[in-house]
């Protein structure tokens, strides 16, 4: 009874798998090393998205009325524009505490900050 011996092609598959797994672990490790990532959960009538707050940028999300524009910078998120009249969401400004929330209700877009180590369980306003 012979031992299972890999063919050259098998060895190529093993090598590719090793590279893939190493890459995944390095990515996961780097994410863990960056500390707890506060994430903005963006709920819209068309589904939920997550924006990591350590990656600055401008994001457009589709809502009930149109497009809301969100900006992520310096570990905080804010509404830059929204197709509502009141613009309460824009005026609310930056949101940075885990557990805090910004919303454009007419457009049905709700941004909640989730993440460990928030100082507050909820924000009263």
């Amino acid at each position: 009874m012979s031992r299972p011996l890999p063919t050259p092609a098998d060895l190529v598959v093993f090598a590719l798998a090793a590279v893939l797994l190493a890459g995944l672990h390095v990515l996961a490790w780097r994410q863990a090393g960056a500390g707890p990532v506060v994430t903005a959960r963006v709920e819209t009538p068309f589904g939920t998205r997550y924006l990591p707050l350590d990656r600055p940028g401008t994001y457009r999300v589709r809502g009930a009325l149109g497009e809301s524009v969100l900006e992520v910078r310096g570990g905080a998120v804010r509404f830059v524009d929204s197709p509502c009249r009141a613009k309460v969401c824009v005026r609310a400004g930056w949101v940075r505490e885990a557990g805090a929330l910004a919303a454009c209700l007419p457009n049905g877009v709700v941004v909640t900050l989730t993440g460990p180590g928030g100082a507050y369980d909820a924000i009263n306003f």
């Binding site: 609310a92 400004g93 940075r96 507050y120 369980d121 909820a122 009263n124």
Partner: peptide
Amino acid sequence: NAGGDLRVLGRHGDRPWRIGIRAPRGNGI
């Protein structure tokens, strides 16, 4: 928490529930 108005039941594990009262003008707590 209904749009910033809230009520709690019990404690958050071994500590009370902690809330932040948002500043009415500008940002932050």
